[in-house]
Every structure is written in structure tokens, then in C-alpha cells.
């Protein structure tokens, strides 16, 4: 590797302090530093600033009892049945009252525990909203399907098709890695006028599932499963327009590149 000039060396200093440069880059930087007083001085300055910063940054202490409160907020693992634990003699008023209570409890449970589908929708919409915050939408910005597709190699356990839909008015903006139910998911980001579409693609063994549509907070989620891969398109577009996107995308994806 050639010896970098100051302009090339400067962005490496921060990683050098952290000991995070790969050996070749570190060696090249060392050769430059040996002959450059300015960069050596800059390195010392950054080190000193980092040490100052570390010594003054305030560690926020978890309030007393937070851990206990968090544990208490968890749903009970196994709700104890009210009736079956009693000695079984004969039906008494108490037992009737007990079973009524258990019934009431199970209805409440049924109503208040969100289904897996609801929970999934909530996560998908939350991930979509999060992606719209600055710096979160795209890890690999590119309108070129041949750049986006290989980017996922090694990042997620599948290689999603990345069809080009720009002629239909859905330009590819790039790709991202996100997490759905704490598992990595490939995300393809498409545009539609000023709107964004996040298409999540992750491995999920199971039977094929036809397209289902859910709505939450003004966002539409279309999800389906095909060949052990789950798909979910999320956007604030009108549901019909998102359905158009879904049809086009799936059609093109099956055609192959």
C-alpha cells in the first residue's frame, strides 16, 4: 500500500485511536505518521480529547428498583387456573364463582393479548416509521439492482430478487438491513412520488400464504409468504397503489433478472 498523504490519513486517525484499522491501513498510516509532524500532533490531540470526553460523560444510573418494576410489568408465565386447584368434591357456589371468574379472565386475556399478526403489523409499521428518520432509510443507496442484490450477501440468509420497477414509476432507492421479531430481514426501498415503500424479505419456513392486508396508523401492510420466504410491503400510499406495486414486484421477481 502506498503511503497516504495528510488528506487521506486524517479520516483514519479516529479509527486508529480505537485500534480498529485493519493491519494494512494501520501500517500505511504509521509510515505516514513517521514523516508528518502535523498528523502526529492531530493524533495526539484526538487521543487527549477522547480521554477527556470519556472522563466527563455522565453515566445515567438506572433508578433504584427499575429492574424489579420491569420484572413486575411482565405478563405472568402461566396464569394459575382458579378452579382446578381446588379439591374436587362437588359443585359449590364457590366453584361456580371461580369458574365464572376464570371465564371472565380468559375473555379479558383473549381481548387484550394482541394476536401474532397484530404484533407483526405493529413491528413492521414501527420499522417503517423508524426508517424515515434521518440516516436510517438506506444502508446501500443505489438505483442499480446489481449493486443492491449482492450487498445482502452475508448480511441476511437469503438473496432477495431485486427487480427494477422504475418504468412503472416505482424507482429503486436502495437496500437496508433491519430486524423483524429480532431476526435480520433484507429491506428493499422503493419510491413513489414523495412516498417510500419498504419491502421486507426474510426467511420463514411454512406453507405459502396468500396476500393479506392490514392497516395501522395510516400505513398499509401487505404480507404474503412463498417458498419459505416471507414478504411484507409497508407504505403510507393508498392501499390500491401499494397493491399495484405488489403485483408488479411479484410479477417481475418471478420473471428473474
Amino acid at each position: 500500500m502506498t503511503i497516504p498523504d495528510c488528506h487521506q490519513a486524517h479520516p483514519l486517525l479516529s479509527a486508529a485511536i480505537d485500534g480498529e484499522l485493519d493491519p494494512a491501513a494501520q501500517a500505511a498510516l504509521d509510515r505516514h505518521l513517521a514523516g508528518c509532524d502535523d498528523c502526529r500532533k492531530a493524533l495526539e490531540e484526538q487521543k487527549a480529547f477522547r480521554d477527556t470526553l470519556r472522563s466527563v460523560l455522565t453515566r445515567h444510573q438506572a433508578p433504584d428498583g427499575l429492574h424489579a418494576r420491569l420484572m413486575a410489568s411482565l405478563p405472568e408465565e402461566k396464569p394459575q387456573p382458579t378452579v382446578s386447584s381446588r379439591p374436587r368434591r362437588r359443585w359449590s357456589h364457590g366453584a361456580w364463582a371461580g369458574s365464572a371468574l376464570a371465564l371472565a379472565a380468559s375473555i379479558v386475556l383473549f381481548v387484550s393479548v394482541p394476536s401474532h399478526q397484530d404484533e407483526m403489523t405493529r413491528e413492521l409499521v414501527a420499522a417503517h416509521v423508524r426508517s424515515l428518520m434521518p440516516g436510517h432509510l438506506i444502508d446501500v443507496p443505489s438505483s442499480d439492482q446489481h449493486t443492491v442484490k449482492p450487498w445482502f450477501n452475508g448480511r441476511v440468509d437469503l438473496s432477495p430478487p431485486v427487480p427494477d420497477l422504475s418504468e412503472a414509476g416505482f424507482p429503486l432507492l436502495g437496500g437496508r438491513l433491519d430486524y423483524i421479531e429480532e431476526r435480520p430481514s433484507a429491506v428493499l426501498v422503493y419510491g413513489r412520488r414523495q412516498h417510500r415503500i419498504n419491502l421486507f424479505v426474510w426467511p420463514e419456513p411454512g406453507r405459502d400464504r396468500a396476500v393479506g392486508q392490514t392497516q395501522r396508523n395510516g400505513y398499509t401492510v401487505l404480507s404474503w409468504r412463498q417458498g419459505d420466504i416471507a414478504y411484507a410491503a409497508v407504505s403510507d400510499l393508498a392501499a390500491e397503489e401499494l397493491a399495484d406495486f405488489r403485483r408488479l414486484w411479484q410479477g417481475k421477481a418471478q420473471e428473474g433478472p
Binding site: 453515566r59 445515567h60 444510573q61 438506572a62 427499575l66 429492574h67 420491569l70
Partner: peptide
Amino acid sequence: MPHVDAAFN
């Protein structure tokens, strides 16, 4: 939850 202090910070 493990690492509750780092998480809270």
C-alpha cells in the same frame, strides 16, 4: 433483563 444499567444509560 440482563445489562439493565447499560441499557438504561
